[in-house]
Design a protein around this nucleic acid. Structure first.
Lengths: 338, 338
DNA sequence: ATGAAAGCGCTAACAC
DNA sequence: GTGTTAGCGCTTTCAT
């Protein structure tokens, strides 16, 4: 492996000069510049990141931890993040925590050893108080600019970029009532997650405010997975007290619900009304008439990265919490004659 | 930031001993071991990866370059890769080339500076000869164990893990003919990509072998995107010589096709027969009856990483090309009375 | 079983 | 403008 020293000797200058031409720093005669550059090109010299980082006492990497990379949602999020990173000199380390707090902690430790300059994280969970405290202390120890994305966790003191969860639940219930439904139900997400509870609470509140409070037996607990939602939906549809209209809590919940509905030979917007949180492109393509509360995930990624960059530039600014607006998209499934 | 030197002083030993404790290498008295470990824990000492790498003259990172992280396909691939990596001591650097060869080259250069030990790459393209030569020379210069995934490129000399593309096209055409269709058509992928051409050629050959050769006007060129496929499908459906049965070249092509079909008020398995390459879970959930040629993407990721590990252990072994088997799944859309 | 010391490849004063 | 030099935080001989 050719080193800066080799280049220096071949070009007949000192390491310092080579360093200067690489980094475009300090003065260097145009002639020597060209000569050194020629040698660099000829030998395809590539500076060792480890050596540079060690010498500079600082890296140019930022870490990203997401809970499930195979979920479209986070795929889009990473895409947005990447777009912004590409315009900077930073490179990124991605980790998949697999919705597992242990893996998450190991990821943070790995990022600590990498001496990342900043962190973007969607916590694996936010409910177990002990785990939360651990996450808090891990992040505090890591001690770099950090932005929490999509899922906040209790006690967080870091910047955040979130979805309007409460309002999403609220406006879904409003829309269902406005469409003429009177008995509302919901398949929740994992209620140990705050984003699930917020959606749930917004939904309840709007139903109450609208004059058609949700009765307890119309609440079915899911867990943000297709399987969990499917099981819940099945129980709901088979009960003899099935609500007229339902809110499904995220993209996977909607799919689980639709699976059960389809299996029973039912049809949304005819046999049962539904609004889902998260847009599911495939359904639109089939003109399936699925109403939803959508958000711009790619934009969420972009924004999160921008917030991180700002925080890095100005560590002392006040804590910043950004909300990504939601958009109600009605396609017919919200009403029974859809 | 606390360093190994600090730990050494506090524990009253030398850096060497601390290093031995950290790396479980060489002899160290149990008493001192415990004492040192206590100090490490107390101060939350985290060794600098840069320093370790520099000192060891070697990193423990492997690089991964995918062309579109927001595509489910690659999300699942990364998941499979991650599963295997997690069982090793390696950490990974992911890059998204965004189907752009320039970004791809920059990614390789970045990985070179990181001194990655191995590389998993799905090339951004494989058709432009000049770009291919550049990719070849970049990889050669990088000079680490490398596995090319999903898309091979001409002239590659590296290990590879691929899908049975030719056979996929072939068996799809066979199935369409067996289902009674006589005029076959296809919406291709970007034919500059080899994987697209292979699927195309397999399809043509099977049609020929089956006695119902494909006529040229039934070939519509797409580009592996929803939009491209949609435009192609629209032209097809509006032509007065529309084939009875169609093969769509990947998940996004299928979706573009279905969009056009839906828009025209048509129905697959009734107005037009179709088989798609790639499984689309959402369609099964809706019981949409979409026949496809499926493969196990997660498994592909696992396998690719395993092949890389083998290559790293044994750099001199013969070049290894693995094929991921395909699975024909018939759900009705392959025949007109589906 | 432990320590001293050299060195990994670079950057950044500081001197000239 | 350019070179000298002292680190950066580790690992790894080689002594002892």
């Amino acid at each position: 492996m050719v080193t800066i020293q080799d280049i220096a000797e071949i070009a007949g200058v000192s390491k310092a000069t080579v360093s200067r031409v690489i980094n475009r720093t300090g003065y260097v005669n145009e002639k020597t510049r060209e000569r050194v550059q020629a040698v660099i090109d000829q030998y395809h010299y590539s500076p060792s990141a480890s050596a540079v980082n060690l010498s500079r006492r600082e890296t140019n990497t930022i870490g990203v931890i997401v809970p499930e990379i195979a979920n479209t949602f986070f795929g889009e999020l990473l895409h947005g993040i990447g777009e912004v990173i590409d315009q900077t000199d930073f490179t990124s380390f991605y980790f998949d925590s697999d919705n597992n707090s242990d893996k998450e902690e190991r990821a943070i430790l790995a990022l600590e050893q990498q001496r990342v300059r900043g962190l973007l994280i969607t916590p694996a969970q936010d409910s177990d108080a002990a785990v939360n405290r651990r996450l808090y202390s891990y992040l505090e120890r890591l001690n770099v600019p950090t932005v929490v994305v999509d899922r906040d966790f209790p006690g967080s003191k870091w910047d955040g970029v979130f979805f309007e969860n409460y309002q999403s639940g609220y406006c879904a219930a409003e829309a269902l009532i406005a469409a003429g439904n009177r008995t509302l139900g919901m398949i929740t997400g994992d209620l140990r997650l705050k984003i699930a509870r917020e959606r749930y609470e917004g939904f309840l509140q709007a139903a109450q405010d609208g004059g058609y409070p949700v009765s307890e037996q119309h609440i079915y607990q899911g867990d943000f997975t297709i399987e969990g939602a499917y099981a819940a939906a099945k129980r709901m549809l088979e009960s003899d007290d099935c609500p007229q209209a339902v809110l499904t809590s995220n993209n996977l919940t909607s799919l689980g619900f639709l699976k059960a509905v389809t299996e029973k030979g039912l049809q949304i917007g005819r046999d049962i009304a539904v609004i889902g949180i998260d847009h599911i492109p495939e359904l639109d393509i089939l003109n399936y008439g699925f109403s939803c509360v959508a958000r711009d995930t790619v934009q969420m990624g972009r924004l999160a990265m921008q917030v991180l960059l700002e925080r890095m530039q100005n560590p002392d600014k006040q804590r910043q919490i950004c909300m990504i607006p939601h958009r109600l998209i009605l396609k017919g499934s919200e009403k029974m004659d859809g």
